[in-house]
Every structure is written in C-alpha cells, then in structure tokens.
C-alpha cells in the first residue's frame, strides 16, 4: 500500500523531514526504533548528505545492528549512502560527554578525571538523572550547531556551512521521551544558575526549534499504536514538533478486500485451496490445504487489525510511512532497502 495515494495530510511527508536539522526518533521498546533511526539517517544522507546518527541509551544498538564491535564515544563514519552521502555514528556516553565538556569550556581535564574517579557518573545517573540527560542533549546540540572551519567552539560561533546536514537521534523509548526532552524542567529544580543551567537552556532552544522533529516508530499492533497516539499528544502539548509516524513491520497484502473480510469472518474456501494445490502438483493436497487455510485465516484477522490500526494512526494527522517486515539477510543490505523505502515515501533532507 502506498501511503502517498491516501490523499493530502495535514502536512505531507516532505514537511515532516525536509529542512529539519535534528530528527528525534522514539517508539515503544521492541518496535525496531534503532533500525528505523539508522535507515532514516541513511535516507537523509542520500545524494551527498552528511548525517550523524547518535545513540544515547548505552545499549550499543547500532553496533549490534551493524554486527560490528562496540562503538566508542566518538563520531565515526560507519555507513555510506547512495549518491555519495555518509552516515557517522556516535554512541554518546554521559561520562565521556562530561569530560569533553569540562575540557572544552574550562580546560579542566584533570579535575574532570578526579570527578569521574569519585563516582561523578553514578552521581549524574543516580541522583539527578536530569543531569545525565543534559550532558547527552548538550552533546547533540553541539553536533547540530557545529559549523565548518575552526575548532569546535561553544555553539553559535562560526558562520560556515553546518558540519552535518542533519542529526538523527535514536532517542529513549516513548515512556521516557517526555522527560528526556524536557531537560530544562528536569534540572531547573537542581541547578538554578551556572553552566549546567545554561547548557540545559541551550539544549532546549535546539529541541524546541522549528527545525527539530520528533518521529514515532511503531508496529501495527495495539499497544505500540496506543502508546504512539499518547506520545504524539504529549509531545505536541509540550510545544515540540511531531514529524512523521513510521509504521514498521507491516505485513504483506496478499488478499483483495473482499477475500480478506470473507476469510477473516469464516475462514478461506478450503476446497478452492485444495483444488489449487492439486493443480500445482503438491502432495497430500487435502490435508495440506487445512494447514494453509489456518495460516491464511490468522493472517486475514491480523491484516484487518493492521488496517484498522493504520486508520487510527492516520487520524493523528501526521504523515504515515510504512516499512514491511525485515527479511533476514545481510543487515547492511536490509538497511539500504529500508532507507530506500523511506526515501520513496518522502524522507528527504
């Protein structure tokens, strides 16, 4: 099913992607968020773009997706996109971000080490999770704002071309995305002045910018769809811009509408299948057709449910992009296939 034939949306897929510099990809656990974020980075890098993919959950999800060794807290070119584009990957780490930050702003590398040795990371992650998020969003903000020419400087300086055309964030899941993005209020009660406060403010400016989009990944299943609808409402209420909904692992369309509802209601015409299996010269057509009929009915019920859920997602008014279930195979070629599907459906810089 091609979503572009579904008539005009509130804003088309182009509005959800083109021109945005920060793409925040969230979704319920198990929906393939990391895979989709990676494919989106590839799609946005297509035809000569330079894109940074950042993961912040410390899961090494991108490395496991690419079947590579764990990635460091360092931007590395990891994938090339069709037409000369490239995707760099950064596995952002709060501790490394803190050291980098101290060095960059204060030239205090050694003091930073001492701080780490004393458990500053336990500190940041345990007592004030907001601080950890500030460090990570700060790192992302820096990458979004970085410009060509000169050493990395505090944001805002420099007038050259942006170093990255776009930054894609493999963000925390839907349940945590609100507090992750709302770093300002998270730290407001803790650090009321000083650089952490300022950095949180800067990060909020980027997150709230009209060139930032929050995309939702879901599967066509009840709970993820429910969470997506709630998540969209939450993000919109907080004044951030929701981009697209990307529906992952959509099943194939095998029956036309009439056959679909008939099969779901009463099961398929077993005799017709038996005749077909006979014609195809398969052994034991009568028994075989029973097994196939039960598969077909399960499929029809599920497919009807998928269609209903896609309809519910469409009601959110956000552009809908769909990806079919990942075929097994070399992960990189599967990824370029998914990226191509996203490009075809309007995911472009």
């Amino acid at each position: 099913m091609n979503e572009r034939e579904d008539g005009p949306h509130d804003g088309g897929p182009e509005e959800a992607f083109a021109g945005a510099r920060l793409h925040i990809v969230t979704g319920k656990g198990g929906t393939g968020k990391t895979t989709v974020a990676t494919a989106l980075a590839l799609a946005l890098a297509t035809d000569g773009g330079r894109v940074l993919l950042v993961e912040v959950e410390g899961r090494q999800g991108v490395a496991s997706l690419l079947e590579s060794d764990p990635l460091p807290h360092e931007e590395r070119e990891a994938l090339s996109a069709p037409g000369g584009g490239s995707v760099s990957v950064l596995a952002a780490d709060a501790e490394a971000a803190l050291l980098e930050y101290l060095d960059l702003f204060y030239g205090m590398r050694r003091a930073g080490r001492a701080l780490t040795g004393l458990g500053a990371v336990d500190f940041a992650t345990s007592i004030a999770p907001g601080l950890r998020d500030v460090l990570l969003t700060g790192k992302i903000t820096e990458a979004v704002q970085r410009r060509e020419g000169g050493r990395r400087r505090p944001p805002g300086s420099g007038t050259g071309r942006h170093h990255y055309d776009a930054v894609v964030l493999d963000a925390p899941p839907t349940g945590r995305i609100g507090s992750f993005l709302n770093v300002h209020s998270e730290v407001a009660g803790l650090a009321t002045t000083g650089p952490v406060h300022d950095q949180a403010e800067r990060a909020m400016k980027v997150v709230r910018s009209d060139r930032t989009r929050v995309h939702f990944v879901t599967t066509p299943e009840e709970m993820p769809v429910q969470e997506t609808r709630e998540g969209i409402a939450e993000i919109e209420a907080s004044g951030l811009r929701v981009g697209a909904v990307i529906v992952n692992m959509v099943g194939p369309t095998l029956l036309d509408a009439a056959d679909l509802s008939a099969t779901a209601a009463a099961g398929p015409d077993v005799d017709a299948i038996t005749e077909g299996l006979k014609a195809a010269g398969l052994d034991d057509p009568a028994l075989l057709s029973e097994g196939l009929a039960s598969e077909l009915r399960t499929y029809a019920l599920r497919h009807l449910l998928e269609l209903r859920l896609l309809g519910e997602l469409r009601e959110t008014g956000r552009p809908l992009l769909t990806l079919s279930r990942l075929e097994s195979g070399a992960p990189r070629s599967a990824l370029s296939g998914l990226a191509r599907r996203l490009t075809e459906q309007g995911a472009r810089r």
């Binding site: 398929p268 017709a272 299948i273 077909g276 014609a279 195809a280 196939l292 598969e295 077909l296």
Partner: peptide, 23 residues
C-alpha cells in the same frame, strides 16, 4: 508452486496461501 499457479492465472486463493506460507 505459487509462481506456477500465478503463471496460469488460476487459483488465486491457493497462490496467496502458498505465498503466505513461504513467508
């Protein structure tokens, strides 16, 4: 089997069932 049926244009339901089964 699905492809051979699709080649003849007959038995579309069986062909769909076979494709589904393959998946």
């Amino acid at each position: 089997a699905a492809e051979s049926l699709e080649g003849t244009g007959e038995h579309p339901l069986a062909a769909a069932a076979l494709r589904l089964h393959a998946e």
